[in-house]
Computed example of a mutant assay.
Amino acid sequence: MNKDTQAVSATEAKSTLESLAMIEKNTTISLRAPLWLNLIISCAYGMGVFSWATTRHDNQWILGAIISALVFTIGVGFYLYRSRLLGVKPKIVARSQSEMLFGFILAIFFGAIVVFSRELSKDGIWWASYAGGIIAAIALGYVSHRFPSGDYKAGVNKND
């Protein structure tokens, strides 16, 4: 039998880990939407949450929710098309358990924002719809920028 044992020095291991971290950082940067597009998508989502929380009976805020949904959908579609043109394929479906857990936590968080802002607004707390829209927009913008791959483990690196 041929045993091929090679000892890896500490400097080689360190340089390999640094290059892997650089590859992960570059991948994260390439998956990010441009700031202007992230701002449009996040503001459309926040406006949708605000509009939905403000609707009462037959008022016109539902039109704001519909327009926000259209702008949000067009923005996400443009991001996916732009990524395809650049040769980057962003994940749409979770592929690992950590991505699934992160997506589930985000779904609970954003769902709670929508429900609580709507219910508190219906109960007469007028500023709840504003707070819900602002929190949703800021949270979506942060998550989209910081964790574009959908995995919270990939966003742990503090050097970007």
Rank of each mutant, 00 (worst) to 15 (best):
residue 32 R to M: 12
residue 34 P to D: 10
residue 49 V to F: 01
residue 7 A to G: 12
residue 24 E to T: 11
residue 88 V to C: 02
residue 65 A to D: 07
residue 99 E to G: 01
residue 61 W to L: 03
residue 119 E to Q: 08
residue 71 V to I: 13
residue 82 R to T: 09
residue 13 A to P: 05
residue 138 I to Q: 04
residue 69 A to M: 14
residue 146 R to F: 07
residue 142 Y to W: 09
residue 84 R to S: 08
residue 101 L to W: 11
residue 33 A to C: 13
residue 138 I to H: 10
residue 44 A to H: 00
residue 7 A to Q: 11
residue 109 F to L: 07
residue 128 A to S: 11
residue 146 R to C: 11
residue 152 Y to F: 15
residue 103 G to L: 02
residue 36 W to E: 12
residue 51 S to R: 01
residue 50 F to W: 03
residue 151 D to I: 12
residue 30 S to P: 03
residue 84 R to K: 14
residue 110 F to T: 04
residue 20 L to P: 04
residue 95 R to Y: 02
residue 121 S to V: 04
residue 97 Q to P: 01
residue 156 V to R: 13
residue 43 C to G: 06
residue 36 W to G: 12
residue 118 R to E: 09
residue 13 A to C: 06
residue 151 D to G: 10
residue 107 A to W: 07
residue 36 W to L: 09
residue 22 M to F: 09
residue 44 A to D: 00
residue 69 A to Y: 07
residue 130 Y to F: 12
residue 31 L to K: 09
residue 73 T to Q: 09
residue 50 F to I: 02
residue 103 G to T: 01
residue 26 N to G: 13
residue 123 D to P: 00
residue 82 R to F: 09
residue 142 Y to T: 13
residue 59 N to K: 03
residue 61 W to F: 13
residue 112 A to Y: 06
residue 11 T to I: 15
residue 43 C to L: 10
residue 135 I to Y: 02
residue 34 P to R: 13
residue 27 T to V: 11
residue 46 G to V: 01
residue 41 I to M: 04
residue 24 E to Y: 06
residue 23 I to Y: 08
residue 54 T to L: 05
residue 75 G to A: 00
residue 70 L to D: 08
residue 147 F to Q: 10
residue 128 A to D: 02
residue 7 A to P: 05
residue 144 S to G: 14
residue 18 E to I: 09
residue 14 K to F: 14
residue 54 T to V: 09
residue 59 N to W: 06
residue 19 S to H: 11
residue 117 S to P: 06
residue 116 F to N: 07
residue 36 W to D: 13
residue 46 G to P: 01
residue 112 A to G: 10
residue 104 F to G: 09
residue 103 G to N: 07
residue 64 G to N: 00
residue 35 L to D: 08
residue 150 G to C: 08
